[in-house]
Design a protein around this nucleic acid. Structure first.
Length: 617
DNA sequence: GCGATCAGTT
DNA sequence: CACAACTGATCGC
């Protein structure tokens, strides 16, 4: 959970993802995505009042986030104060102190974060340097290198600070299977189950939060069906999602919820109440998306784990793994990194210390200049060096700002100023937007930057823009769903879960063999220092298991092996060697073998695992 | 009675 | 499973 207090050292007059306490005084607000733990104080009466008396304070977020936020009536008072921004569109924002008139300009760019629909990172560029606030995110290795706005020409921008989603910044979470791998495992499991008969259905036991939608869209495509959910309201302007969900319960894939859904499931009912169709009892399996992680040296990734006679856990993560974070940070090489989350079992000091290893070192600066690749483990574009001059060009418009106000001079940067003159509580239309030609270049000239506290590193840098090989991270399309202009309530297929409990819940005769297996492990091993590894079920299984393998509970080995994998040649390395039997020879199963296995598991057959193979018994 | 907070659950 | 939200108890206004 985010413990970020809301403000960044470099630009302390804006608040992000926190709206209480000190943040009540912010000149502008930013919401990275619509999850409750990033919305603290957002419906506070004090803030609400402040807005009513302000002509310049606004909330900036993506269009999708705005839509999701306003779907909840408790936040509807924000409507007239939200300024939705397009992704990848540098926008200049004036941060005005309404009391003194003092003003500071900053250019902000939204970058798709891959965490949930509408989630973004905010890149701030201004006289206090370039600062990246990541919000929560899931990037795969290499994603950062494909993002145009993190580059200036062919170089990575000089990032002063990164405010990082450090949820999994801990070697325990070394690797988490990619979305593709996870999805593949889930698809196979589902396909093998629902293919057996129309009465075989799947319940995706998802938590009440945005972020599972891509699962729905992909499964929907794969099986040419819609997924049953409780409500379509929040997606009414997002056709890309809307077309994959339904409130019609006659589908084989459900993601509906009910406060007592687990009880329902035990009674062989879906959360929506369905238990039979055409008089035939349903055959239901539940699949619970949850995070699974693996050690550095663990090659296999068992993406599906059977936890009961008809229940499974499937790997799914909203956040980047340790190695993905390292890839990200290694690429950006910011000067400072501030964690926004402290992984449980660790302390701020510890995490901060570990993050220091990822920061640019003084020596790197020169190393980059003279031998750009010298310090790096893998090739990549050269590092940014100080282009002291680049900025000049941009600054030719010293007094651009005033000009921009009236007309768009530069192209690339939208001027988003909710000026004094502009609109009172009218709609969210974008006020005078102006574009700048270059992505960066915030005119600091006439701006008063005095107030930033904290250390003062002056940055400059910034060069010309150039699009790198911009191939956005996959899943972007989805996470940044397009929205319909407006109402268009198509899809209102029938009643929404009018909790019609279908009576007569048949008893689970079919599943008499209820295994309560608690897939657990003993978390023994009090190995090293602080590493309070919680018991972590099964991942890190033994070697030789192919990707996407379904494990039977019994086979899960309780070795508590959290392979702490760690790169740092540190104590944790010990643990890794300690509890992990090294991977022996193992041959990866062939695809058909796998399919076979899936089919059996899905149909309930018992399957026995052996090294590198599985046989049904 | 509403809201914030915390512990416990899922 | 360590994500995010709901539930219920408690406290304060």
């Amino acid at each position: 959970m985010s413990s970020f207090a809301g403000r960044m050292k470099e630009y302390p007059t804006v608040s992000l993802d926190r709206f209480d306490r000190e943040n009540l005084h912010a000149r502008a607000y930013f919401l990275s995505h619509c999850h409750k733990d990033h919305m603290k104080g957002l419906k506070g009466p004090l803030l609400r009042r402040k807005l009513q008396f302000s002509r310049t304070v606004r909330l900036y977020c993506s269009f999708v986030t705005k839509e999701l936020l306003l779907n909840n009536p408790k936040y509807s008072f924000w409507e007239e104060y939200i300024v939705p921004l397009e992704l990848e569109s540098p926008t200049q924002i004036s941060l005005v102190d309404e009391a003194s008139g003092e003003k500071e300009e900053v250019v902000v760019t939204l970058l798709a974060a891959g965490h949930c629909p509408g989630s973004v990172m905010f890149l701030f560029e201004g006289c206090r340097g370039n600062v990246l606030y990541t919000g929560d995110f899931r990037f795969a290795a290499g994603d950062a290198s494909r993002m145009e706005h993190l580059h200036s020409g062919s170089r990575v921008k000089d990032i002063q600070s990164v405010y990082l989603d450090s949820t999994f910044y801990d070697p325990r979470f070394y690797q988490i299977p990619t979305r593709e791998v996870c999805l593949n495992g889930i698809s196979q499991l589902i396909g093998n189950w629902i293919g057996q008969s129309p009465h075989h259905v799947v319940w995706l036991n998802c938590k009440a939060a945005y972020g599972y939608e891509y699962l729905f869209t992909n499964l929907g495509d794969e099986f040419n069906t819609q997924i049953h959910v409780n409500s379509l309201a929040m997606f009414k302007k997002m056709p890309e999602i809307l077309s994959y969900v339904t409130t019609d319960r006659r589908t084989q894939i459900h993601a509906c919820r009910h406060p007592k859904d687990d009880e329902f499931f035990q009674g062989n009912r879906l959360p929506c109440g369905c238990s039979a169709a055409d008089g035939t009892p349903l055959r239901i399996i539940s699949i619970k998306p949850s995070t699974m992680w693996f050690g550095e040296r663990t090659k296999k990734t068992n993406v599906i784990i059977k936890t009961g006679a008809s229940s499974y856990r499937a790997c799914f993560s909203f956040h980047s793994s340790y190695s993905e974070l390292r890839d990200f940070l290694t690429y950006l090489q910011p000067i400072n990194i501030h964690p926004s989350v402290i992984p449980i079992g660790r302390t701020l000091t510890e995490v901060t210390q570990m993050l220091k290893l990822m920061c640019r070192k003084p020596s790197d600066q020169e190393a980059f200049v003279y031998k750009p690749l010298g310090v790096l483990k893998r090739s990549r574009p050269e590092r940014p060096t100080y282009d002291s001059d680049s900025e000049d060009e941009l600054f030719e418009g010293l007094d651009l700002a005033p000009v921009r106000k009236k007309m768009g001079l530069r192209k690339d940067v939208q001027k988003e100023n909710l000026p004094e003159t502009t609109a009172p509580p009218v709609s969210v239309e974008e006020p005078s937007a102006v574009t700048l030609t270059d992505t960066q270049s915030v005119s600091c000239n006439y701006v008063d930057c005095t107030e930033s506290n904290g250390e003062d590193e002056d940055e400059e840098d910034e060069g010309k823009d150039v699009a790198a090989n911009s191939e956005p991270p996959k899943w972007d399309d989805f996470f940044t769903t397009e929205m319909l202009p407006d109402s268009q309530n198509s899809h209102n297929s029938q009643s929404q879960s009018q909790s019609s409990r279908m009576s007569g819940s048949e008893t689970p005769e079919l599943f008499s063999d209820k295994d309560e297996e608690t897939p657990d492990i003993t978390d023994d091993f009090s190995l090293t220092l602080s590493a309070s590894l919680s018991n972590h079920s099964s991942q890190n299984m033994d070697s030789s298991l192919p990707d996407t393998l379904i494990l039977h509970p019994e086979q899960q080995r309780g070795d508590g092996s959290t392979r702490t994998l760690e790169d740092e040649p540190s104590a944790s390395q010990v643990s890794s060697d300690f509890d992990i039997p090294s991977t022996p020879e193992s041959k990866a199963p062939q695809q058909d073998e796998l399919s076979q296995l899936y089919r059996k598991l899905a149909s309930g057959e018992e399957v026995e695992m052996r090294k590198g193979s599985a046989v049904s018994r």
